[in-house]
């Protein structure tokens, strides 16, 4: 075989693989939307599930998802962004930072079902008086553990993308270290940090395994953070596995896919803003 032919074949092969990867995505998203969009209507969003979810709408899982996501993000964003600020602005590379990075990466790798077991033993059983057992609070504390690494890592990248000259300019004017971080670095990195939160939201909405053990799975509309609830992802799983009513499952999946698409678009737009702000890299 001539070298030229080999090169051609290799190039075709590589293009083929990339095409297949994209085709898989299009196939999955397209299939879910085609199967699910037809079932979506206003009443699907405004009715509570009936008969284990095989009939009716998705109102209570939708409210559960919103409460649960808001609570999780309001716990995870401050801690995650705080950790990222500490790692980028207040330390030099050293043993402590390496250990923190290692554990952050390790946490990202722990399977969600194992975090779920921990959440069950710790938040549901041991801290029952505080968390109310299976509840939105318990689920949020568990999900907090899972998305912390995502938020730390993406926020760190956003902070790293801020040019050193921004900080030096501020310090040279006599502004203190803390004020420089708060009034110069953070505002510049804000779009990137928002992207980090959006990625976190995406993960929280998609998460299911850990929540099976901690959120309670109730079909009722949650009254407070101490009520059990279920999210749309859990609802999809439970409906598909327990009732076999695939039309509800597909409609729920279509809602999830649409939300993920929107988050993805918003995250991309914000990253563009960040790049425009720091002069494009």
């Amino acid at each position: 075989m001539s070298i030229k032919l080999k090169e051609r074949l290799a190039e075709g092969f590589v293009w083929g693989a990339a095409l297949l990867t994209v085709a898989i995505l299009v196939l999955i998203v397209g299939y879910i939307l085609v199967q699910g969009l037809g079932k979506l209507s206003l009443s699907f969003f405004l009715e509570n599930p009936r008969r284990m979810g095989s009939e009716g709408g998705i109102l209570s899982p939708l409210i559960g998802t919103i409460f649960f996501t808001l609570l999780t993000m309001s716990l995870a964003t401050p801690v995650g962004v705080g950790a990222a600020i500490y790692l980028t602005e207040f330390t030099r590379e050293g043993p402590l930072v390496r250990v923190i990075r290692f554990f952050t990466d390790a946490l990202a790798g722990i399977p969600s079902i194992v975090i779920g077991l921990f959440g069950f033993a710790f938040f549901v059983v041991l801290l029952r008086p505080l968390t109310g057992g299976w509840s939105i609070l318990t689920g949020s504390l568990t999900a907090f553990c899972m998305i912390l690494p995502t938020i730390v890592r993406v926020s760190e990248e956003a902070l790293h993308s801020i040019p050193q000259s921004f900080r030096e300019g501020s310090l040279a004017l006599g502004v203190s270290k803390w004020d420089t971080v708060i009034h110069v670095v953070l505002p510049s990195a804000f779009p990137g940090i928002l992207t980090a939160s959006l990625l976190g939201v995406g993960r929280v909405i998609g998460e299911t395994a850990a929540l099976l053990l901690t959120l309670g799975g109730s079909l009722l509309v949650p009254k407070s953070v101490f009520s059990p609830a279920r999210t749309l992802s859990m609802h999809l799983y439970l409906v598909a596995m327990e009732t076999g009513e695939f039309s509800v499952a597909f409609a729920t999946a279509a809602v999830l896919v649409l939300v993920i698409l929107l988050l993805n678009l918003a995250g991309y737009y914000l990253l563009r803003r960040l790049m425009a702000r720091v002069g494009g890299a």
């Binding site: 909405i205 998609g206 799983y237």
Partner: peptide
Amino acid sequence: LAGIPSVVYGL
């Protein structure tokens, strides 16, 4: 692809 929930892959 990384963002799609695993239950959607399951379905």
